[in-house]
Amino acid sequence: MIHFPAQRRGPLSALSLRLAAAIGLVLAVVAVVFIERNGYRDVNGDGLTLLDCFYYAVVSLSTTGYGDIVPATQEARLVNVLFITPARVLFLIILVGTTLEVLTEQYRTGRRLHRWERKVKDHVIICGYGTKGRSAISALMENGLDKSRIVVVERDGPALRQATSNGLVVIEGSATRSSVLNQAHVRTAKAVIIATDSDDASVLVALTVRQLTAGQVRIIAAAREAENAPLLKQSGAHHVIVSSATAGRLLGLSTSAPPLIDVVEDLLTPGQGMALAMRSAERHEVGKNPRELETLVIALVRRGKVVTVADRANAVIETGDMLVHVRDDRPTANTLP
């Protein structure tokens, strides 16, 4: 099942609005009947009281119509035709509003699904909306990826609702099932990020994605244990991030070299100061050593392989290289004189 971000009010708000509209309509009919009460005939023959007007309004709007109170004059009948009859139709629409809203929502969801299926392409699929999945989405959006190009695959109810409330499209189900990944249009995806809670599930997801896409879609997976990283790569993952080993190294750095952990934290935290970025080499930069540039370049990406600036033999910028550099990520950086 595909869940789209909610675009409607809460149920209590919608119900309160309908109730207020129904009460307002009843009061309006009561007022009109009370003003024209001399034009109505009562079986008792004693005229219409305010309570009689309420009674007539309710039985008329609900189409019950007992016939004990009827319009007798031409003016009262004209008012009945021009006002009370349309009010009766409107009152019935309010009463069946819930059914109409459900049908409308189903139609709207169908339209959104059809439009989404036509446009979804070069998107990123996030398998798992836990801590790792949410962090991956934040990093993607910080690097300019539009939220509409992110699809979450999640089967946990609370996590699913949180993802939809954050404006993301969510496929409900397990990412290990090919039918679920097909709903996410995995064959036209740009990349699949596997952020499940267990390594065995990650391996199954990687195998399923590789089988469906014939290895044409980039797979990035997170592993809890370093010993499972080779298995994930054999299963089809192009890159494996070992969360436990990475956390352990950072913990070790924080003890033996505290300033280094501050630098790493600064690089990984958006809007704090420094941030890692990547851009294409410009024409006037070709043939130069990265150390000669004003930008602080720490590596080159050449034909899919990383060339560090420490490699003096190859650390010369060539056409088509991507420059990995450190940029100023402070929010006020662009506003400084």
Rank of each mutant, 00 (worst) to 15 (best):
147 K>C: 04
319 T>I: 08
49 T>G: 15
137 I>S: 09
146 D>Y: 00
136 A>C: 14
28 A>N: 05
286 V>R: 10
164 T>E: 12
134 R>G: 10
236 G>Y: 00
171 I>W: 08
148 S>V: 04
78 L>A: 11
290 P>W: 01
334 N>P: 12
27 L>A: 12
135 S>Q: 15
266 D>Y: 02
61 L>F: 02
17 L>C: 01
140 L>K: 14
313 A>R: 15
199 D>H: 07
62 S>P: 02
149 R>T: 01
267 L>N: 00
296 L>S: 11
324 V>M: 15
15 L>H: 03
217 V>A: 06
91 F>S: 08
126 I>R: 04
276 L>T: 00
232 L>Q: 11
106 Q>M: 07
85 T>R: 11
16 S>F: 12
101 E>F: 05
95 L>Q: 14
156 D>V: 08
147 K>D: 06
150 I>T: 10
308 T>C: 01
254 S>P: 00
84 I>L: 13
167 G>H: 10
100 L>I: 10
132 K>W: 11
307 V>N: 09
47 G>I: 08
290 P>T: 12
21 A>T: 08
327 R>P: 00
208 T>F: 00
39 G>R: 09
241 I>D: 06
271 G>L: 11
98 T>M: 10
209 V>W: 02
16 S>L: 10
200 D>R: 13
284 H>C: 05
212 L>E: 14
317 I>H: 06
173 G>A: 13
218 R>Y: 07
93 I>Q: 10
172 E>G: 01
54 F>I: 15
56 Y>D: 07
10 G>S: 11
15 L>K: 11
224 R>D: 06
151 V>C: 02
271 G>Q: 11
210 R>N: 13
159 A>H: 13
310 A>Y: 08
290 P>E: 14
40 Y>V: 05
196 T>G: 00
131 T>C: 05
71 P>C: 01
296 L>C: 07
157 G>D: 12
210 R>A: 00
146 D>R: 15
249 R>D: 03
295 T>N: 07
213 T>I: 03
313 A>C: 09
196 T>A: 04
262 D>N: 09
159 A>K: 15
52 D>V: 07
315 A>H: 08
183 Q>E: 12
142 E>F: 14
17 L>G: 03
55 Y>K: 15
290 P>V: 02
177 R>G: 02
73 T>V: 03
206 A>G: 00
337 P>I: 11
68 D>Y: 06
254 S>E: 03
109 T>I: 13
153 V>I: 15
48 L>G: 01
240 V>W: 00
226 A>E: 08
153 V>F: 09
145 L>H: 12
269 T>C: 02
326 V>D: 04
2 I>H: 09
182 N>C: 05
287 G>D: 00
82 L>Q: 02
201 A>S: 13
263 V>C: 08
336 L>Y: 04
233 K>S: 07
329 D>A: 09
14 A>E: 11
122 D>Y: 09
216 Q>G: 01
65 G>V: 07
186 V>M: 07
287 G>V: 01
257 A>C: 06
68 D>W: 14
83 F>R: 08
78 L>V: 10
111 R>I: 14
116 W>Y: 14
311 D>Q: 14
68 D>Q: 14
168 L>T: 04
325 H>T: 05
302 R>S: 02
280 S>D: 13
140 L>N: 02
236 G>C: 01
8 R>Y: 06
127 C>N: 12
289 N>M: 08
139 A>Y: 03
151 V>D: 02
253 L>N: 00
261 I>H: 14
196 T>P: 03
265 E>Y: 04
164 T>A: 15
74 Q>W: 15
87 A>C: 05
205 V>L: 04
154 E>R: 11
